[in-house]
Every structure is written in structure tokens, then in C-alpha cells.
């Protein structure tokens, strides 16, 4: 079943076309990667899906309904969560509060309940805290609830960002370079975590990634963008052999047979 679908998605910044006619179909429970050289429009695509940019043309449909131009907070409430390329936590708040803020749309009590601390308030807060702790345990941050977010080590910050996104109870999770700046060991753990998100929680993953090893390792489908256009799509193996992809990454000479015939993986080349 199709969870997310964009058709003819186009976004211009002045004269620059960041996205041109991008058709993207993300199947439910897939791990779908978007790759492409710098400036290919990957993050713009994410910003259009999450409502922070309004596309100039085209349509975005999520679970069958159009979400084009919808306000970011409403998109989030529909079940699309995201993380950021450069980690963006609520740095001065505690780890627990970061996740509790993600639960914001799922906590229901009125202002008066909060002021009077009614049973309804207590119940909702207790349930929220339980869920937040459970999510932290899921990503491996149990016991760090009351650290200040900014004080966490880098890898933990990435995990916390994912836990916070999970708090929205998303159907679709957009991960923007989740392994950027990680050492091989941390990357390995992140790959495992992403798999568990899909397998244990049934969350569909749309992933921007530069590390080819990661992409080839976990993706069901890979979409390649270059200068705002989709130039290839398919299984990792198909994409690796696609001459247009090799050209985009390694230049024209490589594609005409002078270079490697597949996209090299780090450590292979």
C-alpha cells in the first residue's frame, strides 16, 4: 500500500529549481532512501513534505489525502515526524522534556485541568511520562531522562532526536542523514535501530543518507535526485549500476566506461 506519494512536485527558489517534477512513491513499511549529490534537493523535498515549504506545483498525498501546503504542525499531527541533518534538540531542556514535547499532540487536558491539577491532568501526565520513558528505553537512553539534552554525547543526541520524533507516534519518519558524523560502530547501531523502527513499530522510513554503505545495506528502494530531478529509482543494486547515477556522482568519464561500472562503496574503491 502506498503511504506517501508526490506527483509533479516542483519547488523554485528564485531562478533556482530545487525540485522539478518529482514523483515519489513510498510504500508502507518500506525503508526508502533518497540520495544525491549536495544540492540535489533532498532536504527541500523533506521540507515540502513536512509543510515548512509550500511547493510551487504538484501534489503531496499522505495515506490518500492531500497534504500539500498544510501547516507544519498539522502535518506532524497526521503522523509525519522528522529529524534533522544538523541535530536540532531542545538543547536546554531535559532529555525527558524533549520527548514529552513530542507527545504534545497526544496529551489531552484543558488549561483549567492543568491549573487545578485535576485527576484528568494527573492521569494524562503520568501516561505521557510512561510513554516517554518507554521510548527512551527503546532507543537506548534509559537512565538518562534528566540529563540536559545538550550534555549528551553526539550519538545519544541522534537517538534522542529519534525518540522525540517517535513521540509523535508517526506512521512515516523522515530521517535526514542519521549517521552523519558517526564512527563505524555508532553507524552500525543506528542501522540496527532504523531496522527495529520498521520491524517492531511498523514505521515507514524515508531516509536521506550520504553513506553509501548504509544506503545499500538497509534500503528497500532508493531514489536518486540530481539538480532537483529524479534520475533513477529502484533497488540498491539497480541504482548502483545505473549509468546516470554513476555520472551524477563520479562525472561523465566514469559513466563512459573509463571508471568503475558500479558506484563504489567506501572500503571497496
Amino acid at each position: 500500500m502506498v503511504l506517501l506519494e508526490t506527483s509533479h512536485l516542483t519547488k523554485r527558489f528564485g531562478g533556482l529549481v530545487a525540485l522539478r517534477d518529482v514523483d515519489l512513491v513510498v510504500q508502507e513499511r518500506a525503508i526508502h532512501s533518497v540520495i544525491g549529490p549536495n544540492g540535489a534537493g533532498k532536504t527541500t523535498l523533506f521540507n515540502c513534505i513536512t509543510g515548512f515549504l509550500v511547493p510551487d506545483a504538484g501534489d503531496i498525498r499522505f495515506s490518500g489525502t492531500s497534504i500539500t501546503g498544510l501547516r507544519p504542525d498539522l502535518v506532524a499531527r497526521l503522523g509525519i515526524a522528522r529529524t534533522y541533518q544538523n541535530i536540532r534538540l531542545f538543547r536546554h531542556l531535559s532529555v525527558l522534556d524533549n520527548v514529552l514535547i513530542g507527545l504534545h499532540p497526544h496529551i489531552n487536558y484543558s488549561l483549567l485541568d492543568a491549573i487545578l491539577r485535576t485527576p484528568r491532568y494527573r492521569r494524562a501526565e503520568r501516561a505521557a511520562e510512561r510513554e516517554a520513558r518507554e521510548l527512551l528505553a527503546f532507543v537506548g537512553l534509559a537512565g538518562k531522562e534528566f540529563f540536559t539534552a545538550a550534555n549528551l554525547p553526539y550519538g545519544d543526541q541522534r537517538r534522542l532526536e529519534i525518540a522525540r520524533a517517535l513521540a509523535l507516534r508517526p506512521k512515516l519518519l523522515l530521517l535526514d542523514e542519521p549517521t552523519a558524523g558517526m564512527n563505524p560502530h555508532e553507524t552500525e547501531e543506528m542501522i540496527r535501530l532504523i531496522r527495529r523502527l520498521r520491524d517492531e513499530r511498523g514505521i515507514t522510513i524515508l531516509l536521506i543518507e550520504h553513506d553509501m554503505k548504509v544506503v545499500m545495506n538497509i534500503s528497500d528502494v532508493v531514489t536518486v535526485l540530481d539538480f532537483g530531478e529524479k534520475i533513477a529509482e529502484g533497488t540498491p543494486e539497480e541504482v548502483r549500476r545505473d549509468p546516470r547515477v554513476i555520472e551524477a556522482y563520479l562525472g561523465r568519464g566514469a559513466a563512459s566506461g573509463l571508471g568503475p561500472s558500479t558506484l563504489p562503496l567506501p572500503g571497496e574503491a
Binding site: P72, D73, R77, E125
Partner: peptide
């Protein structure tokens, strides 16, 4: 200590992300 207070903190820390969290 309420949901509203947390949404204020979120806005203070990062308005963009706060919105992405459904606030």
C-alpha cells in the same frame, strides 16, 4: 508543568522544530 508550558519552552528553544512536533 503543563503541556502549554512545555510548548512555550519548545518555542523558546527552537520554533521550527516545535512546529514539527505538532505545536
Amino acid at each position: 508543568d503543563s503541556r502549554l508550558g512545555r510548548s512555550w519552552f519548545a518555542i523558546r528553544e527552537d520554533e521550527h522544530v516545535a512546529q514539527a512536533m505538532g505545536i
